[in-house]
Design a protein around this nucleic acid. Structure first.
Lengths: 349, 349
DNA sequence: CTGTTAGCGCTTTCAT
DNA sequence: ATGAAAGCGCTAACAG
């Protein structure tokens, strides 16, 4: 016979409310009965049904997390922060992998809502107007991590992408590089594509460096994309003469590094490379990749903290907006400074 | 007012059973009413509560997955296979990160059972007798992936670790390496530690090669462990004279590779290295890592398939055991063949 | 084809 | 401090 609350109550010779009480507010039960019930629970290996619990109490102690792909490297790092915060607040996680695809994204939201999550952390694609409308009707608070919404009405935690890219390129410029190529993400990606590209152009502009179409290639953030894009860039290098490269992701930076190697070029002696993300692999390649670090863990943590606050009801309107967390340039081995004479000589030509 | 099945029924002027029917077996409802109900559902943006559904029907269409750490690299690859299979069977996933820790592992099982998952895929630590007893009392089928149980009574999908390690080392031997070092996992790890170590010793034995204590170092599978272990190995290399290394994980192999580089040694010219796992990073480092591939995706897929079969009830006792999936050596750039003369000359000494 | 009704396993008043 | 009873939102006979 199945073991449910009723069964436990019978065996312990108490009412089911008493059993419920020892589970939820033991201090309301006499020590003696409490002991007895606990004993029976132990013996029967009773596991209260969270379904029934949630249905009855309207609380599930669970938050939903929507991510683009479990296989995206950054997810690992983000998850750590989410996990820490969730445990700290005694909540649980329901994860949904939306595969970076709109249909699965909306399905993800309903999947979670139907399971009565109390709030949702969304860490996938840019939120368009259409998706925003959809989310508004959900009835549960949603916090964005590593992404943002078209009108910025949804609270978001991320780095200032434009600024971070600007800083990365400026870093290269400060080290004497005046011809800088870029491997960008797709420009129709408003989170990490267009933004990082703009940061690149702004930095060039700021330092009165010319922008060359032939110095930019595009890719989908993966290793192979970086390798292919670099090949395109290298083909025109006789004209462009670039000495440094800014890649919109670590994976692409590493792919580009390999491509350079395949062409007999060495990094950073011949070409300096800076990446973006500071994934753990950035530290595993040789040369170790200099890159822009995103505080993934902190972003996950803050997002959860804010979500929990929103669930508790004390959400201030002023919170609704983008929160920028500090990025940082991690200096490793893939960028070299050019000697002053070298710079001068090259500029003279 | 909240929108539940009752509300939908009222607005559509039908009974709640009719609403329930259009959701679960629409063919039993007249087209006219069906339309009307669907319409209302749409307008009200009604989302059926999966909690109530599961509670009432005893079916949740959900399987639980317990993994050691989301941040473990292999999880990404395994998850892909699980995800594919789960979607194919119209199920859903509840993920639990047990952090490779016993307390959280048991908590994970109860967490999932309380949420009425219909079965569980377990992909974490070795199942001890104690844990086995615990699992047996759970009442839901459990399938193992990438791990196994002390008595092999639980159906498991994995590679034959001993054999795979044996093959890796034999591969090195066949390429003329007679002094082979190993960076092993902890020997009290019965899944990937002791097994791979044994495979190493068996291969040495088989080929009448001496086993040297100074040719083995240990680490916890991570990059840093590999780097440190390699340093230990290198310190004794004057005596041991090893020309090749077998690492029990790709991360450790890459760490070792870097360590060699730091000591002015080049791979594979001075030292050949073979890893284990074939993670995506193995293909991103230079030289690309030769390694033993585990069919993670296939393992995930098969595990789910078998689990679903077990849930449906058609489980054959004969299924309960270890299923070994084929491993494979992926030849890349980190292993060199030694010239015959070189081998002969060295052996003469 | 459709509606009525009795649960599913738990929480939560409301009495006592 | 404890129990009885009314739901929570849904499914699943059962009757018509």
């Amino acid at each position: 016979m199945k073991v449910n609350i009723k069964r436990v109550a019978q065996e312990a010779n108490v009412s089911i409310s008493t059993v419920s009480r020892v589970l939820n507010s033991p201090e309301l039960v006499s020590p003696e009965k409490r002991q007895r019930v606990l004993q029976v629970i132990q013996e029967l290996n009773y596991q209260a049904s969270e379904l029934a619990r949630g249905l009855s109490s309207k609380k599930t102690q669970t938050i939903g997390v929507i991510i683009p792909r479990v296989t995206s490297f950054f997810f690992n790092e983000l998850y750590r922060g989410i996990d820490v915060a969730v445990k700290e607040f005694g909540m649980n996680i329901l994860l949904y992998d939306c595969d970076s695809n709109l249909e699965r994204t909306t399905h993800g939201f309903t999947f979670l809502v139907r399971r009565q999550v109390e709030g949702i952390i969304y860490a996938s694609q840019f939120i368009t107007e259409e998706l925003y409308t959809f989310i508004s009707r959900l009835g549960v608070p949603v916090i964005l991590a590593l992404t943002e919404s078209f009108n910025r009405k949804l609270t978001a935690f991320k780095v200032d992408e434009v600024r971070a890219a600007f800083d990365a390129v400026s870093y290269l410029i400060a080290r004497g590089h005046h011809r800088i190529a870029m491997i960008s993400g797709p420009l129709d990606n408003f989170v990490a594509g267009k933004t990082r590209y703009e940061g690149y152009r702004m930095a060039l502009n700021q330092h009165n460096l010319p922008f060359l179409d032939d110095c930019v290639a595009f890719g989908g953030y993966r290793y192979e994309d970086g390798h292919r894009a670099m090949r395109e860039l290298l083909e025109k290098r006789n004209d462009t003469q670039f000495t440094a490269l800014f890649a919109a992701s670590d994976e692409m930076a590493i792919g580009a590094m390999r491509c350079a190697f395949d062409h007999g070029l060495s990094v950073p002696q011949d070409i300096s490379i800076i990446g973006f993300d500071n994934l753990s692999i950035a530290n595993m390649v040789t040369p170790k990749l200099t890159t822009v670090s995103q505080p993934f863990e902190q972003i996950g943590f803050e997002a959860v903290r804010t979500l929990i606050r929103a669930i508790s009801g004390d959400i201030h309107e002023s919170d609704s907006s983008n929160h920028y967390l500090p990025h940082q340039i991690i200096e490793r081995e893939s960028v070299a400074s050019r000697a002053i004479e070298e710079v001068a000589a090259a500029d003279e030509r």
